[in-house]
Write a protein that binds this DNA or RNA. Sequence first.
DNA 1: AAATTAATGTTATAATGTATCAAATTTTAC
DNA 2: GTAAAATTTGATACATTATAACATTAATTT
Lengths: 161, 161
Amino acid sequence: MTKKTTTPIPCSQHDHKKCKKNALQRARQVCQKNKVRLTPIREKVLELIWQSHKPLGAYDILGMLSTEGQTAAPPTVYRALDFLLAQGLVHRIASQNAFIGCSLSSHPHVSQFLLCRDCGVAIEIEAPAITDAIAENAHQYGFSIDQNTIEISGLCQCCQQ
Amino acid sequence: MTKKTTTPIPCSQHDHKKCKKNALQRARQVCQKNKVRLTPIREKVLELIWQSHKPLGAYDILGMLSTEGQTAAPPTVYRALDFLLAQGLVHRIASQNAFIGCSLSSHPHVSQFLLCRDCGVAIEIEAPAITDAIAENAHQYGFSIDQNTIEISGLCQCCQQ
DNA sequence: AAATTAATGTTATAATGTATCAAATTTTAC
DNA sequence: GTAAAATTTGATACATTATAACATTAATTT
Ligand SMILES: [Zn+2]
Ligand SMILES: [Zn+2]
Ligand SMILES: [Zn+2]
Ligand SMILES: [Zn+2]
């Protein structure tokens, strides 16, 4: 039996080093299970994304990669991101043209985020009530769902004080 | 008492000329009420957006504007779009970097769309169940909502045959 | 080891969006 | 009615985000 992952609200104090370490370990497991390779570049990009809970732009990542000695061009980053997206290890935040590490990569789920406009934090939520309400509504239109983009912008608890 | 707006499923046959005419009329009313000006450029952009129920990119609009004799530069279109967004006359579809006419501009609502990946149609829905489920969930996190991006991609009824 | 596939490097370019300042138009104030 | 102020539009340049195309390297399979 696997230990339940307690998901801290990322804008508040938490052991982020652990947060990140867990994410990278999950990533290795996922890649092993999917029989795909988490190459050094891909892992590095994932690690950079996990440096915070704020979505990063591709060119932010590119900049970070480059300052670390390595030289990189846009396709390098976009390829790594495409890979990580395909494996469900990161999500794309369409409203920000940015990317965020997935907190729930160990099981299937749809992309649902609360996005703080002040501190920038992205809180990944798993809300069956939302998913169900959407499924129900889509069904009424005879619409079959592929993918959800649920991005709720506002102020997180910490930023309302 | 105002007549109830019957919203046809836009991928199926419907009187789109009427659809468009109604939208433009609503736009004039909204602008009058908000004491803002629906200038010729703004109206033209709105009209172009309403030529179909498929979201249009800013540069698509720009191209259409230019082929119609007028000469236009990107800021012209983006300004018009910003205006129309501010007045709630169009919505931005973040997952497509595109813009679509609002079918519900006569009353307050959040942005919720079903997007067909085959025919490209955007169906604006008004689903209190979704809105409520989101509000409930946000509340649990102490998150106060500004804006929703609800974009459900899949296949519309017509494209499943 | 050779052949095949997958991943990365490299260059160029496409697509989307904004900053800035000048000119014209509309609105407001007198 | 006219001058001043504010809004809107024109025009140029540029910033940001993303992809196409092809060469090279590395890993996997036969
Ligand atoms: Zn953390
Ligand atoms: Zn996730
Ligand atoms: Zn129509
Ligand atoms: Zn709407």
